[in-house]
Structure formats: C-alpha cells, structure tokens
Simulated assay, not measured.
Amino acid sequence: MLGLQYFSFEELWTPWFLFGMAAIVILYFYVIGPWREKHAPDEPKVTLLQKTMFVGAAVLFYLVQGGPLSLLGHVMFTFHMVNMSVSYLIVPPMLLYSIPSYVWRRVFSHAWWQKLRFLMNPISTLVLFNLLFSIYHIPVVHDYVMTHFALHRFYYSVLFVTALMMWWQIVCPVQEWNRLTDLKKMAYVFANGVLLTPACALIIFASTPMYAIYSDPQVWVQAMGYCVSGDPSRLLDMFEGPQFFNLMEATEDQQLGGIVMKLVQELMYGIILSYIFFHWFRREHKDDELPNTNTGTV
C-alpha cells in the first residue's frame, strides 16, 4: 500500500480537484456536441479516438496532480518523476490531438494573440520548456518550489503551458498553423531529447541525495503541509520521515526516478519519431504507389 492507508480519503483523492477535472470533461463534450451543432455545424465530428484521448488525458492528469500519485510524489522521488513524465510528456500531446481544430481556431482567433506570436517560435518553445524543466530540478530550486505552495502551483502551471507550446510544434492540431516539415519535426524531437538528457543524467549519476525534501524530515514535513490537513508536524510523531514509505535508500530512489524520467522520455519521443517518419515516408512515396496510367505505345 506504500503507506497510503495512513492518509484520509480527502488527502488521497483531493475531491475539489476531481470535481474540477470532471467539469472540464463535461465542458469538452458540450463543446464537441451541442456547441458544435449550433456554432460550427459544418465542422467534422470528433472521432471516438479523440474522445478517448481527452478523457484519458484528464484521468492521468488528475491522478498525478490531485490523486494518490500526487501524494506519493511527496514521499518518493521516483513517483515525483512519474508525475512529471505524465504531466509534461504524455498528457500535452494527448490534449492537443483530442481537441478539434475548430476549437483552437475559435480560441486563438482574436487579433491580440498576434502580439504573442513570437512566443510560438519553435526554437523559443524548445528552449523555454527544457530550460524551465532543467532549472526546476536544480536541488535548491526544487526544494524551494516544493515547500512554497503558491510558487509551486504557479511554476507547475507555467511548465504545463510551455509543455503544450513545445508539443504544439510536433503535433500541431491546426494544419494551416503548422510551422515545421516532417524532417524538421524529427530534428525537433531529437533536440528535445538532447536538451533533457543533462538533467536526467545529473540525477541518475548522483552518488548522494540531492533533494532535502526526500531526505530531511523537517523539509519533508513542510512540503507535506500542502497534501495533508491539520498540523503536518504530526507526521513526525507517526513516521520518521519519507524513509518510512520508501523501501530504497534516498540515493537509490533518486536514481530510479531519473531512470524513469529518461525511459518515459525515450519511449514517447520514439513513438512520435516513428509516427512522423512513417507519415513522411508514405507521403514521399505516394507517387510511387500510383498505377501507371500511360497506355500509349512507342
């Protein structure tokens, strides 16, 4: 049970967050259903796969940001990296794919969005996401963010937006807004993998615990104050610290977390690269597949 039995239902499942995600799912089905029929009847219906992807993204995001995995991310670094992987490498492309193009066109149709167009430059989005992600995993930054709730929510929100901006270049849901060719997309995905590697390597090959939140009981209790009700110091009377929940040493947990992050990154980027490559290959060889219609004689 990983110690989850010691926490209440509210602490594990965060009902207010659950209701919020449920409301977003309901809004999604309203937009692709009654709203589309009234305001965009000529637009194609959303496919079953798109609906499944959106609901799946909502469920995953809830589990890692408001469900049990979120709490576990405060006691084990491995779960923290699982949460980061799901939040920024898996959920964003699922959302971009699942939301139909006419919604994106309607949302970004206002002229004032043009003033922020420079932020969507592929190089800017590439550097911005990976820079923010890497800075976050500098030990002093990570511990400070994790122990200051308002900053924690703000940083996570900004990181999620920049993840969407980065993934937009790869799985752009609006065809006419697509800036990159398939070959450039493959290079873009490869560059993402390269830029994310130093942060993962630093974590994987560290020989000592880097993050106080997973090794110092006092810092851990301060961070847990945002997950549990009442005085979080009571946790020290019940447990000796985060080590109570972890079968591994802090360094081993830290290394496993880095490995998990790198593996998920490689898996996602590998899948995306394969899809882009086969899409490019089929398009480039489409003419070769056409039957020879030249029936003339020489």
Rank of each mutant, 00 (worst) to 15 (best):
L247K: 10
L180Y: 00
Y28M: 12
L183E: 14
I135K: 02
Y156D: 10
Y155I: 08
L69H: 06
L180S: 01
V264I: 15
R36G: 01
P291Q: 09
T52Q: 11
V25L: 12
R179F: 08
M248F: 15
T208W: 08
M165D: 05
Q222S: 11
V59D: 02
L48N: 10
D143T: 07
A23Q: 06
S229V: 10
T208I: 10
R179M: 13
L196I: 13
R106M: 12
I213E: 13
L60M: 14
C172P: 01
I90W: 08
G20C: 06
F160R: 05
V64P: 04
K38A: 15
V260K: 06
P232T: 02
S109M: 07
L290A: 12
G230H: 08
Y6R: 06
I170Q: 05
W16R: 11
V91C: 03
V161E: 05
P198T: 06
A223K: 03
P198W: 10
Q243K: 11
Y62D: 01
L131A: 15
S274F: 15
F239Q: 02
V103Q: 07
I276A: 02
E43D: 10
P209Y: 10
S87E: 13
N83L: 09
K286Y: 12
E176I: 02
M261G: 00
I271D: 05
M166N: 09
I135M: 13
S233D: 14
A187K: 14
W112P: 00
Y97H: 08
W13V: 03
I259P: 00
E37N: 15
V31A: 14
Y275W: 15
L116A: 14
G67A: 06
I272T: 15
G67M: 08
S215M: 03
M53D: 03
T251G: 00
M84K: 01
H152L: 08
I204Y: 02
F29M: 02
V189H: 04
L267E: 04
D42P: 00
M21N: 05
M238W: 10
Y88M: 11
K184M: 12
L180F: 04
L49M: 10
V194A: 13
Q5G: 11
W113A: 04
C172L: 03
F154D: 08
D143A: 03
Q5T: 12
P139T: 09
W168E: 04
I24Q: 10
M238E: 08
L131R: 09
Y28R: 12
T251D: 04
P209G: 05
Q254K: 08
F154M: 14
G257Y: 02
V31N: 07
D42T: 11
L267I: 14
G257P: 05
L151M: 14
G20K: 04
V82Q: 02
F239H: 09
T208L: 10
A111L: 10
G241Q: 01
L267C: 07
L267M: 12
V228N: 05
Y269M: 13
M1T: 11
V141G: 07
A250Y: 01
T147L: 02
F160M: 11
G56S: 03
V174L: 03
G258S: 02
L71M: 11
V127T: 08
R283V: 06
G67N: 06
I99W: 03
R282E: 11
D216W: 00
L273M: 15
F154Q: 09
L2E: 13
E10D: 15
K51N: 12
V55P: 00
N130S: 11
